[in-house]
Structures are given as C-alpha cells and as structure tokens.
Amino acid sequence: MGWIYLILAGLAEMGFVSLLKQTQGFSNPLATGGFLGCALLSFWLLTKATASIPVAVAYPVWVGLGAVGALLVGTLLHGEPMTPTKLLFSVLLIGSIVGLKQAA
C-alpha cells in the first residue's frame, strides 16, 4: 500500500507544480487554494507512504516523480521546450526511481 501512497503523492506534487505559475505570486486565490490543497495532500500521502517505505527511498522517489512531472507540465502545458538533454536526464531519473524501488 505504501507504493500506492507514494505514487499518489507524486501525482499530487505534479498538481501543485502545475498550479505554481498560475498562483501569480499567491495573488490568484483559486490557483493558490488548489496549490495549497495539492501540496498538503502530497505531503500527507508521503507521510503515509513512509509508514512502510524507508524515508531514504520514499523521499528521493517523491522528488523524482515531482521533477519529471514538472518537466512534463512545463512542456505540455506551458510550452517550454523539450530538449534532447532534458529527455536524456528525465529517462535517467526514471531509471533511478525504478532502481530505488527495486532496492527497497
């Protein structure tokens, strides 16, 4: 169950990352509320995940999911360029996440 919590925490992190730009420095109340809701949900799910997954594994996986999610959000929603270098390091990051899961 811990891995399900961790994946959901990563998805919630992608939610707050996707809303970060729309908060406009926390001056947009709706986007700010969504950002805060996703952030709280993400942290809560992360704490649930660490009940059965070591923090030394759960936290880097959570950060990695958020980093890849931020790259995807930036590329797909905000028109940021996807370069071969970004793609390469994203694949390496995903490989690291899979490796950490196998090592857990």
Rank of each mutant, 00 (worst) to 15 (best):
Y5S: 09
Y5Q: 06
Y5I: 05
L6N: 03
L6E: 02
L6S: 05
G10C: 01
L11R: 13
L11C: 05
L11G: 09
A12V: 00
A12T: 01
E13A: 06
M14Y: 05
G15Q: 01
L19M: 08
T23G: 07
G25Q: 04
G25K: 01
F26C: 00
P29T: 02
L30T: 11
T32A: 11
G33Q: 08
G33S: 12
G33T: 09
G34A: 00
G34S: 00
L40F: 14
L46P: 13
T47C: 12
T47K: 14
K48I: 07
A51Q: 15
A51C: 11
A51Y: 12
A51I: 11
I53V: 06
V55L: 14
A58H: 13
V61N: 04
W62L: 08
V63G: 05
V63T: 14
G64E: 04
L65E: 06
A70I: 02
L71Q: 10
L71E: 09
V73G: 12
G74K: 08
T75G: 15
L77S: 14
H78S: 15
G79T: 01
E80G: 10
T83A: 03
T83P: 04
T85M: 10
L87C: 07
F89M: 07
S90T: 13
S90Y: 04
S90L: 04
V91C: 08
L92G: 04
I94P: 03
G95Q: 09
S96N: 13
I97N: 01
I97D: 00
V98S: 06
A103S: 09
A104I: 03
